[in-house]
Simulated scan of single mutants.
Amino acid sequence: MDPSTGVGADQELPQLLELHQTLYRIALENGVLHTALVARELDRPTAEITEAVRDLAALRLLHPTQTAGADAPGEDPGASPTYTANSPDVATAHLNGPVDARIRQLRQRSDQVNNHVMIMRGVFEEARQSHYTRTGVERLTGIDAIRGVLERLTLTASVEIASAHPSLPAQPVIDEGRGRTTEAAERGIRLRTLYPHSVLSHPYMRQHLSTVAGAGVQFRTVGHITDRIILFDADTAVVADPDQPANRGALVIRDRSLARFLYRSWESMWDSGRPFTASDGDPSAAPKDDVRREVLRMLESGMKDEMAARRLSMSATTYRRHVSELLVELGAQSRFQAGSYARRAGWLVD
């Protein structure tokens, strides 16, 4: 490391030890640092002092004032190299100057590339819009893009927003969407939402449904929902994109015939759902009958615990607790037997 040029951007920074701090303090307190004199005063080898001083000089914490002469123990201190101290602010300004200049250069290059390539943005948007007009399907990528489209469709809906959600939403998601939901209800929009029965086993979800139902939103629960779907005025649908990771992609379907077909399928599921009532929102009494019935269906099908728990939007631990209770209640020796007993007893009706 060359003290005259400082520490390069790609070089490793020298470690600052107790000796470095001592030398820097001497230079600050005395106004000048004589390497040979300090070596004698500290009773340390001149080579060790010289190396530490080189580190401080490379970091621009010391600045040489005299370079004539050699660092030898018997030499006149006046002939040995001397240094004055710079403040850490001055030192970092010296060292970071070239780095900051390079950053500015790279930022200018980045802006240049963006401005040059983004000239084609208009062509891209025009072609994409033309494609969507022809196909009636728009692909969204990323949470921000999905959220933006949902907000616009919610604001422009004039009759109804119908939706189905296959799993329990995270509490922050629920809290974030509550305002948009109540605002739409206040505009007179009919809001109907489907959830799996299992979401009612979560107190905060029951409280949320009770709160929003008070604003006029209708909820029903069913045994299982395959995919998330949101329908706006029965002629625009937003569904999960199966080719992208969960919650990272969506398809906006504006083809009226296809959207109407999806709406009729949703209506069929709605008709089979169980309405959410005020008693369901009681935090002291989580409704279990529908949940237990779906657990029995899973047992009858032979589905593995982890997969069944995901399908019912509950943890594997909660699912196994339901299973244990049902085995005892039915006097069954196996999971499949429990499902069989439940059907013969009339607990399961297709």
Rank of each mutant, 00 (worst) to 15 (best):
M1V: 11
D2F: 04
P3V: 10
P3Q: 13
D10G: 10
Q11N: 07
E12P: 07
E12G: 12
E12A: 14
L13E: 02
L16C: 01
T22V: 12
Y24S: 05
I26Y: 08
L33Q: 07
H34V: 00
L37A: 15
V38G: 03
A39K: 04
L42H: 13
A47N: 06
T65E: 06
Q66K: 13
G69E: 03
A72C: 06
G74W: 12
P77L: 06
A79V: 08
S80H: 12
T82M: 07
T84N: 02
D89E: 08
A93K: 10
V99P: 01
V99N: 05
R102M: 12
R102D: 10
L106G: 00
R107M: 13
R107Y: 00
Q108H: 02
Q108C: 09
G122W: 02
F124Y: 06
F124L: 14
F124M: 11
G136F: 06
G136N: 01
V137P: 04
I143Q: 12
A145M: 04
R147W: 01
L153K: 14
T154C: 14
L155I: 13
V159D: 14
E160I: 10
L168F: 04
Q171F: 12
I174L: 11
E176V: 05
E176S: 15
G177S: 13
G179K: 11
R180K: 06
T181I: 12
S201V: 11
Y204P: 02
M205A: 06
A215P: 00
Q218S: 11
R220E: 01
R220S: 07
R220C: 02
I230C: 05
F232T: 08
D235Q: 15
T236F: 03
V238G: 01
V239F: 01
A240Y: 05
D241Q: 03
A246M: 14
A246N: 11
A250S: 10
L251F: 05
I253F: 02
A259H: 05
F261K: 14
F261T: 15
L262N: 04
W266D: 02
W270N: 07
R274E: 08
S279T: 08
S279L: 12
D280A: 08
G281C: 09
G281Q: 06
S284M: 10
D289G: 06
E294Q: 14
V295I: 00
L296G: 04
R297P: 10
M298A: 07
E300H: 14
G302A: 05
S315A: 05
T318M: 04
R320M: 14
E325T: 11
L326Y: 03
L326E: 08
L330M: 14
G331Q: 09
S334P: 15
Q337E: 15
Y341P: 03
Y341C: 09
Y341M: 13
A342D: 01
D350T: 03
